[in-house]
């Protein structure tokens, strides 16, 4: 018994040590930092209670950032879910070159967000970029400051690029889910005279529901942590039109050395993510785990 305990300890210690040092300690120290006024040097002894939280939550830049995150969360579900579903159903048909198509659709997902961002930044260059020149050559008016430079359009533009980057993951997961739909169901439905559309709507999509729910969860968590793409495309601008919670805490922490504020923003980000994850788990995903058991 003692020996077994020793073995277990030996096996789990490296992983637990890594998690403790690089995950748990930093998370707790973000929480601690949030209660002090601290610029990053000297002892952290200026305890100010919840003042940082008050400042963060009343800072319009931060509340806008939270709103931007939520806009991305809901836009992803509203746009990428139907689009991803349509593509998955399309690629699930027995068409020529299906394997190649599946690979191609997944390519953007494999690229680093930064690299995809840099390419799109070039495409979206005001005046000289190919997108603006193509659009204006066919008579579609383009904004004077470019798509990324116009406050009203910047967030939507970032979202379009994100959709390009991440649609492949949705398609991939949905295709895997569709693989789980037995061929017999398709055949039986066909024999009964159902059309392809009817089969998709009444059989395939309902059977895909657990996969869809999982994708929504992943997409939600990812949207709340959005950083790389925004940082490359707009840096949070113009006029804070595309800030997210993470760009806010990064610029507070690294550029202004406002560690207390950055800590408070981290905690708010964590709490929002945690509450949404738990709520989603309790309200939506619970059905799936129950069905498994």
């Amino acid at each position: 018994m003692r020996r077994q305990r020793l073995e277990i300890l030996l096996f789990v210690t490296p992983a637990l040590a890594l998690m403790a040092v690089f995950v748990l300690y930093p998370v707790f120290s973000a929480a601690r930092m949030s209660l002090y006024s601290w610029q990053g040097f000297g002892p952290m002894d200026d305890f100010i209670g919840l003042e940082n939280y008050l400042r963060v939550l009343t800072d319009e830049v931060f509340t806008d950032a939270v709103m931007h995150n939520f806009i991305i969360v809901f836009a992803s579900i509203a746009v990428q879910l139907p689009l991803g579903l349509a593509l998955a159903l399309l690629l699930n048909r027995r068409i020529k070159g299906r394997g190649l198509l599946r690979t191609i659709v997944f390519v953007p997902y494999v690229l680093a967000e930064v690299i995809a961002g840099v390419v799109w930044f070039q495409l979206l260059q005001p005046r000289t970029g190919i997108l603006e020149r193509t659009l204006s050559s066919i008579g579609i008016p383009v904004p004077e400051q470019g798509f990324l430079g116009t406050p009203d359009l910047a967030l939507a533009t970032v979202f379009v690029v994100l959709t390009w980057k991440y649609l492949g993951l949705a398609v991939l997961l949905f295709l895997a889910g569709l693989q789980g739909v037995p061929d017999e169901l398709h055949e039986a439905a066909q024999l009964d005279g159902a059309s392809w559309w009817q089969v998709q709507r009444r059989i395939a999509v309902p059977l895909l529901a657990p996969t869809i729910r999982t994708w929504v969860f992943l997409s939600m968590i990812g949207s709340l942590q959005l950083f790389d793409m925004v940082w490359i495309l707009t840096g949070g601008g113009p006029a804070n039109a595309t800030t997210t919670m993470v760009t806010y805490l990064i610029s507070m922490g690294t550029q202004r050395s406002n560690y207390g504020i950055a800590g408070a923003a981290s905690v708010v980000l964590f709490v929002i993510g945690f509450v949404m994850a738990l709520a989603y788990q309790a309200l939506v995903l619970r059905r799936d785990t129950k069905a498994d058991a």
Partner: peptide
């Protein structure tokens, strides 16, 4: 409980801990 530590770890994005990680 030990397994739960890892599962919960999924919910801690690096972004939350990034500033303290930088200092650490």
């Amino acid at each position: 409980p030990l397994f739960l530590v890892f599962v919960l770890g999924l919910l801690f994005p690096a972004a939350v801990a990034i500033i303290p990680l930088f200092i650490l």
